[in-house]
Design a protein around this nucleic acid. Structure first.
Length: 225
DNA sequence: GCGACAG
DNA sequence: ATCTTGTCGC
């Protein structure tokens, strides 16, 4: 697939924040949400211990059956140090390269991290959404910011994640009695729709099949490198 | 000032 | 993210 939007690569955290602030207005958050996607892509990155090697993986699933349609992996290096709030700059180049190798264009991107639940409202899912133009959402294992009431113990229970009163995401229980995941909108999707997709993608485990498949693929690629 | 802090 | 033994619970 094509990734049309490009921007200069930052050297310093200050430059990185400036890029986020410049891309932020390009977000489309007005839409009702992506209507039933036919294909959903999961993205994840694994890192090597000693070196700065990494493996970025994209797995496209049939949204109805959750069966893989296409896979793409890229071996690369960390493009930025890990800084909370600037996490996207670390793995964006490799993820974009993996996306470009796909022969199909997925209808939705599910990122391993946050979208709007971010200090400048521009997490990885927002960034990837703007670069690709595709609907994108984030599903993170832990919150980066915000507060929330513990959701009910049943799968499907949810409570808003608020940052200074603003709803930036949702703590969503994808399995009975298991700690929730944190869902946020990235681009061209609303929070309710994102949570609906998160649940549909997680019929059995805490994490969505998209993330699980991408995680497995990226680890395997790193081993085989 | 101190702690927290996606992966 | 990744390094890692044992341990608790279903």
């Amino acid at each position: 697939m094509d990734v049309p939007v490009r921007h200069p690569w930052p050297t310093t955290p200050r430059e990185a924040e400036a890029i986020q602030d410049r891309l932020r207005p390009l977000l489309d958050l007005t839409g009702p949400g992506s209507d039933e996607p036919r294909t959903v892509a999961g993205l994840d990155v694994s890192y090597a211990e000693g070196s700065d090697l990494l493996a970025a993986a994209v797995v496209v699933l049939d949204a109805a059956t959750l069966k893989p349609v296409e896979e793409s992996v890229v071996i690369g290096t960390a493009a930025f140090p890990y800084v909370p709030g600037l996490f996207a700059f670390r793995e964006l180049p490799a993820l974009v390269e993996a996306l470009e190798k796909l022969s199909v264009t997925p209808d939705l991107l599910v990122c391993d991290g946050h979208g709007l639940a971010h200090p400048r409202r521009f997490g990885l899912a927002c960034h990837l959404g703007v670069l690709t133009g595709l609907p994108a959402m984030g599903i993170a294992k832990t919150p980066l910011l915000g507060s929330y009431d513990p959701p009910g113990e049943d799968r499907g229970s949810a409570s808003d994640l608020r940052d200074n009163g603003e709803v930036v995401g949702r703590a969503l229980r994808t399995r009975d009695g298991v700690r929730p995941v944190f869902v946020s909108a990235g681009h061209r999707i609303d929070l309710d729709t994102a949570c609906r997709h998160a649940l549909a993608l997680s019929p059995r485990f805490r994490l969505p099949e998209t993330t699980r498949r991408a995680d497995r693929l990226s680890r395997q690629a790193l081993r085989d490198s």
